[in-house]
Write a protein that binds this DNA or RNA. Structure first.
Lengths: 332, 332
DNA sequence: CTGAAAGCGCTTACAG
DNA sequence: CTGAAAGCGCTTACAG
């Protein structure tokens, strides 16, 4: 069968302990013995069994990741990009990545977390749904947690967020400085913190520029293209506005689609700023100005924090707030 | 510390073997005893340790997935979508998914496979790079392999592909039936089988309609938007053609961008069919006609085959060829 | 500097 | 129908 550490030990004429120490570099072993062991490993084509190692050492070198991608949202590049960033950092450091999807559903999320618990993950990186609250603490194992994209209150853990408030503020104030006063705001459900933060950025911008807040200019829908389409339609047909800020990527696409379908001139009739810099934003006509989140960086950072936390679990939790930038193109 | 099966056994007044059998339903246990065990588990909040189970039972309930997403290709929804499909099926069946990325680099691919081998995965689902050949067989462990998107020759394993030949055939013959005779073909490197298959579909369509093949109409670049842009530019400036078939998603975007930047009328000056149905294809002007691959279905199917193969490893390997459809919109 | 041995938490023949 | 015990392949105090 497969060769074990015992076989290597016999082949090299040493104890299994010594082989283990050579493999893990956990104690000084003379060069002579080390060489013998290494040659034996090569000769026998030894492949360490990480499962056994995990059991004994009580760490799995595995990090769990839970993303909240909805079933039909197969173009959610934000999370793809974050996952890429995480995978990059982890695999460079010899860690494995176990991936799961909550589909933005709190029930499924709990199931996934429980599954991960049985796997003895060393840490969990998660974009939590609104289901994760102070009461959820007991759900998690004794591993460090890094939240990204959203951050539940009352649950200890590090976090990496993009400053949604500042993001929206940037977009909306750019619209204002172009002379717009009647600015619509479209977002997804407010129980997801990102939507809420961005909404606050919108309000803050209006406030700072001395523009009155008008509730009629707000449309809250679902986080998908169809809803973006509907909300834009509603907003534009019911209100006299000159600009729209869309606080979500899928909805941005819906907004563009509605405006195009109905032959609105962008930015002549309606100025538009969308969220997230997907590739298509550069090729629509006019190219869409957007808020670009540093998504890959979010992933990398989350993974780095996780690895640090695993090394020193004592230090207090900390947050990282990354900044988004406004990409100015032709839509406002 | 954490409670073990031994604690449950003591609490329930039975042996660990009985507890194990209750958990795994692997032998008949009287209802009475079963109940006692179940109550004990609940009382002690017992969480099985899958690592220990894996070690003992020599199966990990974990499948490895290796995708070939290049570093900057964060909009590769094809693989995102496939991964979603895989995750969906696996987690429904109690399996875990370990994800890694080869970045389309054979060297990295080998490293990732080796990492997976140490993890004792029960199976590997992979879109192999061109580095996987007959000689690579020794690289894999004794687990079943399901290839998707591409299929290396001479390596045993099941596979799930989308018929690239037929896909391209469909697109190109649609162009021909619209009256086009001078049709350009743009694709990525030919060492990736998908590009090659699609090229063959292009040739076959020309042949079947009695149109001569002209090598000057072919442009082979890299699998990214910039290259799509360049190839389109070259093709259009050097040749007199009326239509282009682009055999890759990122390159399709580049092609559209070039045509738009240079104010070509689509389909008036140049008719266009792209590859893969990303969300943006519906909102550009005119909406892009594309070949839509059933990406999520590829993932689901790959996972299902994997699970079947794990259950009965005796049956012979089989392939699944899914069909892509032509989505007709306004670009030809 | 190296080795003998216990033990991580399970499953699984085997015996009764 | 249930239990005692071996063993999966490692790591890690401990002794020398």
């Amino acid at each position: 069968m497969t060769t074990r550490i015992k076989d290597v030990a016999k082949e090299a004429g040493v104890s299994t302990a010594t082989v283990s120490h050579v493999i893990n570099d956990t104690k000084f072993v003379s060069d002579e013995v080390k060489l013998k062991v290494e040659e034996a490993m090569k000769r026998l084509q030894y492949i360490p069994n990480m499962v056994a190692r995990s059991l004994r050492s009580r760490k799995s070198n595995t990090i769990g990741l839970i993303v909240p991608i909805k079933t039909n949202d197969n173009s959610n590049n934000f999370f793809l990009s974050v996952a890429n960033g995480i995978e990059e950092v982890l695999s460079k450091n010899g860690y494995h990545l176990l991936v799961s999807n909550s589909h933005e559903d709190p029930i499924e999320e709990i199931e996934r977390i429980k599954m991960f618990n049985t796997q003895r993950i060393d840490g969990l990186i998660i974009a939590p749904t609104s289901g994760i609250t102070r009461e959820s603490c007991g759900l998690f194992g004794h591993y460090p947690i890094v939240f990204f994209d959203r951050r539940p209150e009352g649950v200890p853990g590090d976090w990496v967020l993009v400053d949604g408030m500042k993001s929206a503020y940037r977009g909306v104030s750019a619209l204002i400085e172009k002379g717009h006063r009647k600015i619509g705001f479209i977002a997804g459900r407010m129980d997801i913190p990102t939507s809420n933060d961005r909404f606050n950025g919108y309000r803050k911008a209006l406030e700072d520029y001395g523009i009155g807040f008008n509730e009629d200019y707000i449309r809250i829908g679902d986080l998908n293209g169809a809803s973006g389409y509907e909300m834009t339609k509603e907003l534009i047909s019911q209100e006299v506005i000159t600009a729209v800020f869309v606080a979500n990527n899928a909805m941005s696409l819906g907004a563009v689609k509605y405006l195009k379908d109905n032959h609105y001139d962008i930015p002549g009739d309606i100025a538009l700023i969308g969220f997230d810099d997907y590739e298509w934003t550069g090729i629509v006509n006019p190219p869409l100005s957007v808020i670009r989140q540093p998504s890959c960086e979010v992933g990398r950072r989350a993974a780095e924090i996780m690895l640090k936390r695993i090394k020193r679990s004592d230090s207090i939790c900390q947050g990282h707030l990354l900044e988004a930038e406004l990409i100015v193109r032709g839509s406002f």
